[in-house]
C-alpha cells in the first residue's frame, strides 16, 4: 500500500478535511500541511473502492512538494482521466477533490 495513504502518525501542523460518507460508499479525508521548503505534504485516508484508493495515492504523491496554487488547480475530472478511473467511479474522484479543496481552504 502507498506510503501516502493513512492519517499522519503525528497530526501536528496538518489541516484535515473530510468529504463523502460511509453511507454513499466513499469517504475521503485529506491531511495537508506546508513543509519548511514551501512545498506541500499531502496524505489521504480513503474508504472506497480500490481504484479510488489508487487515485488518491497517486494524487498525494503528485501533490507532494507542489505549491498551493498547483494543488488548487486539481479537479476530479482531471484526476479521473490522469489515473484512468472507471467512468462509474468519477463521483469518487469528485470526493477526493472536495476533501483536497476543503483542506486547502483551511491551509490558506
Amino acid at each position: 500500500m502507498s506510503d501516502y495513504l493513512g492519517a499522519p502518525l503525528e497530526a501536528v501542523g496538518f489541516q484535515h478535511a473530510s468529504a463523502g460518507s460511509l453511507q454513499i460508499g466513499c469517504r475521503v479525508d485529506c491531511w495537508l500541511r506546508t513543509q519548511a521548503s514551501g512545498g506541500l505534504e499531502v496524505r489521504f485516508e480513503v474508504f472506497a473502492e480500490h481504484s479510488t484508493i489508487e487515485a488518491a495515492a497517486w494524487l498525494a504523491e503528485w501533490l507532494t512538494g507542489r505549491t498551493i496554487d498547483e494543488a488548487s488547480s486539481v479537479t476530479g475530472l482531471w484526476l479521473a482521466e490522469a489515473t484512468g478511473m472507471p467512468v462509474e467511479r468519477r463521483g469518487d474522484a469528485l470526493c477526493i477533490e472536495d476533501a483536497l479543496r476543503l483542506a486547502l481552504g483551511d491551509e490558506t
Partner: peptide, 21 residues
Amino acid sequence: RGISPIWRELEAGEGIHKVYG
C-alpha cells in the same frame, strides 16, 4: 483499515452502531 478514516474513528472509540448509523 490502516488507510480508512472510518476505522480511525472506530479505533478512537466511536462505536460501530454510531458510525454505521
